[in-house]
């Protein structure tokens, strides 16, 4: 099959396998740089703003204890030396020990990690159903009852803070109706409400974007041409419109997933006491457990970087498939 040699198709990272590997390597490099920056910012914040020994020490420590701590951690070494050591530690997986949980900070994070992964995946799946399928159906018939109901829901969901929506769901579905546990992780039904919160808030944003992309696409001249061939609206939508909006749609959903790891999911975890990274971070902060907090922030950062990379690769894969079909 001849590939059209036009500017649009002749991108540097074409469908060739070599280009793809290069792309992945380049993105990994960017990701590592990003993470290094995150680490650096955390270090600077904890070491330059205030006395690090005070930050790491328990609240009720005496001056003497703080001094001992500082010596033990090598906090009286020169700044740059400490910075370099910290870097090496972090990138070799040594995040320090949790004085609260009396074990390596990383272990505490890894215990919480699967729960956050589970919640983000369940949440984004729900968000995709509401946002993508709902957005397409509403965009295909703007002004219909289906459109109005969903549009209203998504606007409402977007105009309240996500934790507030979580509380609302708890009040209605746990306290009033008693259908689901209010908090914690007690069996499978526990995930329903936090995942629903994610689905409604993030699905709401996906819905808005997908809906307007669909409405815009449906008004294009080629849609009129497709209709002039006799195709009913459904066929026009599936055969023609979705081929054009599919890429945008997948990317929108992917970005929402990245956004979850960037922080959006953590407040929801806290509201439902879902034992994930967000809840861990907040507990660690309360207990002045900075090693755990740092580890959690860096691991979450790693997930942002990785999911960003995956969204990017997915975009390429769909784009190339569309171009090559």
């Amino acid at each position: 099959m001849p590939t059209p040699q036009t500017p649009a198709a002749g991108r540097p990272d074409g469908p060739a396998a070599g280009g793809l590997v290069l792309l992945i390597l380049r993105r990994l490099r960017d990701g590592i740089i990003t993470l290094a920056l995150v680490v650096a910012v955390i270090f600077v914040l904890t070491n330059l703003v205030g006395d690090p020994a005070l930050v790491y020490a328990p609240v009720d420590a005496t001056d003497e204890e703080v001094e001992r701590l500082a010596r033990a951690f090598g906090l009286d070494d020169p700044f740059l030396q400490r910075f370099a050591e910290y870097f090496v530690d972090v990138f070799t997986g040594d995040f320090g020990d949790s004085h609260w949980q009396k074990r390596p900070a990383l272990n505490a994070v890894f215990d919480a990690l699967p729960n956050t992964i589970m919640l983000t995946l369940a949440g984004i799946a729900g968000a995709a159903v509401f946002g993508i399928i709902g957005g397409i159906m509403a965009g295909a018939r703007p002004g219909s009852v289906f459109d109005r109901v969903n549009n209203l829901t998504s606007v409402a969901a977007l105009s309240v803070p996500n934790f507030w929506l979580g509380l609302l769901l708890i009040v209605v579905f746990s306290l009033r109706l008693g259908l689901f546990p209010t908090s914690g992780k007690l069996g499978w039904s526990s995930i329903v409400l936090p995942a629903a919160t994610v689905a409604i808030v993030h699905g709401g944003r996906i819905f808005q974007l997908v809906r307007s992309a669909t409405v815009e696409e449906m008004s294009k001249p080629y849609v009129l041409v497709a209709r002039s061939k006799g195709f009913p609206r459904r066929t026009v939508l599936w055969r023609h419109v979705l081929r054009n909006t599919g890429l945008t749609t997948a990317t929108i959903a992917g970005w929402e997933y990245v956004r979850l790891w960037g922080g959006a999911v953590f407040a929801i975890e806290w509201v439902f006491a879902w034992p994930g990274i967000g809840t861990l971070m907040i507990n660690a902060a309360h207990r002045q457990d900075f090693f755990v907090l740092q580890a959690a922030v860096i691991i979450a950062g790693a997930f942002v970087v990785t999911s960003n990379l995956l969204v990017d690769l997915m975009y390429r894969a769909i784009d190339n498939r569309v171009k090559a079909s």
Partner: peptide, 12 residues
């Protein structure tokens, strides 16, 4: 139709 540039589906 009048405008051949927009009458065809760009990805088909």
């Amino acid at each position: 139709f009048q405008d051949p540039l927009t009458s065809l589906n760009p990805v088909m």
